[in-house]
Design a protein around this nucleic acid. Structure first.
Length: 543
RNA sequence: GCGCCCGUAGCUCAGCUGGAUAGAGCGAUAGCCUUCUAAGCUAUUGGCCGCAGGUUCGAGUCCUGCCGGGCGCGCCA
């Protein structure tokens, strides 16, 4: 809605010189008009002149018809406040109705191919609550980017080549031996979980008793493949039931097998970015923004975790992505500088990789914290969580807060059917809109025609304005990679909708009012639905 | 010790590339409503935006130092 005015202001700004940035925003106080700019103050700052005088010059240069303006005034220290032509709001609302499920989508002027990598959990156990937050965030960021016109690939990276998976295979082999009635011990640093006993029993049943008689190397290799398949299937199932699907599952082992790890090392060496010391090979990371240099190849000849990770990111770059976003747990933040240093050293564009961090989640039941201990058994898996509170509540909750703030997940509250539960509150607001249309005996898409703002009151108009802010909210959330802006918007919209529901009767009003309010109910229902869909949350017509 | 994140109302948190008088929910207090779905509305209460400087016409927002909390600082992943 503000784009034409912004363009016109930009044109005027250029006539005063081309290096001026300005904002155009909705003032908090409605008496300040529909939109306000600080352009005159920015120009005055540069020229050391009087902002109010500058504002007059800006206004004189402005073409009111180009921006559909009904009023312009100078206010405060030099703001220019604009009032839009009365039918601007009605026009935008009609666009909401005609765009329907597409409302809120936009086409960026710079569409990019973007890879969003998230969850990427080790295949050594079930996904926990923290992975859930990463899943909701990554999927939310991906959806936002799609909504604004980017081409997005959702990717999951499996660390299937490290020592963790080797320990897991050894542990499983030990369980197989035990199942076959032979003495065997879980190795040092191995996995003691019950699920390995079950996996061992299954394996013996499927492969026959002779499986336990295999030679150690062969048995281990098959245990490794078996446990990897089991864990991957388990994680994929958990994510699929959570509504998250990946386009690409990338494997660390394949990065090795395809020679990419060796190639990455060679490339770093050829570029003179490495040196040898104490029998190890080091990366000169400190020359590229890291605090210190980092080991690439240990003195025992094996690689550190960093190397396949570098190779993997090069692989993503080679696949033609203009931009990559990684979602990591906040406990890995110390890893960012060395990754960025390596990519910079290899000549990737600045800013190519963006790392979004998710803070850990504290789970609370009632008032009591649920301790996350694998040993004690009251460990809450992601599946446990959403089977108890529902996928909708879980996804909404994970996205309610900025990802870099700590999140308190209150299971009792997320389960409750009350207005204290934000998810319920939002879904209820939409269900009420559906209810109005249902009582009117009208399908939403059959409520058509023009809205008449003249017959409506302040609550109606406030709600309409909020609805028409949805597209800019999506754009901003996408630009900042911040899905929580959508939940915050939904919460505001729900509050306004519940208020409207009580003050503004629809059915039984005069035909003109009833018609316009039915249109409003349809529009509100649409925006709620679009926003919830974007976040992967259902939008039921009845609660 | 060094680095990163956080610090906003009693609690949980928003706060738009620096903008006009810092907001919401919950809680508390008072009243209203009893409904197109019961979880609704209004008012009141509540803030040295961690502290101290600085930059700016203007700072919750940017810079510096300090305080408090979390996390990370391995030839682990």
């Amino acid at each position: 809605m503000s784009e034409r005015l912004r363009a016109e202001l930009a044109r005027v700004a250029r006539t005063f010189g081309d290096d001026v940035t300005f904002t155009l925003e909705r003032p908090r106080d409605p008496s300040h008009g529909d939109l306000a700019t600080n352009l005159a103050m920015q120009l005055a700052r540069r020229d050391r002149s009087n902002p109010r005088v500058m504002a007059e010059r800006v206004i004189a240069a402005l073409d009111p018809s180009a921006a559909m303006l009904a009023g312009v005034e100078i206010a405060g220290p030099g703001f220019i406040n604009f009032r839009l032509a009365a039918d601007t709001l009605a026009q935008e609302f009609q666009r909401l109705l005609s765009d329907g499920p597409q409302y809120g989508r936009s086409r960026t002027s710079e569409p990019r191919r973007i890879n969003v990598e998230f969850v990427s959990a080790n295949p050594t156990g079930p996904l926990h609550v923290g992975h859930g937050r990463g899943a909701a965030l990554g999927d939310g960021i991906a959806a936002l980017l799609e909504w604004t016109g980017h081409e997005v690939t959702r990717e999951f990276y499996v660390n299937d080549a490290g020592v963790q998976i080797a320990r897991l295979a050894e542990s499983l082999w030990a369980r197989v031996q035990q199942s076959a009635g032979r003495p065997a011990e879980i190795p040092e640093g191995g996995y003691h979980g019950e699920y390995l006993k079950e996996a061992a029993a299954e394996l013996l049943q499927r492969e026959g008793e002779g499986f336990a008689d295999l030679e150690f190397a062969e048995g281990l290799a098959r245990c490794r493949a078996a446990i990897l398949a089991i864990q991957r299937a388990e994680q994929d199932g958990t994510l699929a039931d959570f509504g998250v699907r990946f386009d690409v599952i990338a494997s660390e082992q394949e990065v090795y097998d395809h020679g990419e790890v060796a190639a990455a090392i060679a490339r770093l060496q050829d570029a003179g970015l490495t040196f040898e010391e104490d029998g190890a090979l080091w990366l000169r990371a400190s020359a590229f923004g890291d605090d210190r240099d980092r080991v690439l190849r240990k003195s025992d000849g094996s690689y550190t975790y960093l190397v396949p990770d570098i190779a993997y990111h090069l692989n993503k770059f080679r696949r033609g992505f203009d931009h990559a976003i990684d979602v990591w747990g906040a406990d890995h933040h110390g890893y960012i500088p060395r990754m960025q240093a390596a990519l910079k050293a290899l000549g990737l564009p600045d800013g190519w990789l963006d790392v979004a961090l998710v803070q850990l989640v504290r789970v609370v039941r009632g008032g009591e914290e649920v301790k996350m201990s694998k040993r004690s058994g009251d460990f809450v898996t992601l599946r446990d969580l959403y089977e108890e509170v529902g996928v909708d509540a879980a996804r909404y909750w994970f996205l309610m807060r900025r990802s870099d703030s700590h999140l308190v997940f209150d299971i009792e509250l997320a389960k409750s059917r009350s207005d204290e539960n934000p998810v319920f509150y939002v879904q209820m607001a939409r269900a009420r809109m559906s209810g109005i249309l249902r009582n009117a005996g009208r399908a939403p898409e059959d409520v058509t025609g023009a809205i008449d703002l003249g017959v409506l009151g302040a609550d109606d108009l406030g709600l309409i304005k909020k609805l028409t802010q949805f597209p800019e909210t999506v754009e901003r959330a996408a630009r900042e990679h911040e899905p929580h802006r959508i939940t915050t918007y939904l919460d505001d919209l729900a509050r306004m909708s519940h208020g409207w529901y009580h003050t503004s009767r629809v059915l039984g009003e005069s035909p003109a009012v009833e018609h316009s309010r039915l249109l409003l109910a349809r529009g509100a229902r649409q925006v709620f639905g679009n926003a919830l869909t974007l976040l992967g949350i259902s939008a039921p017509d009845r609660m």
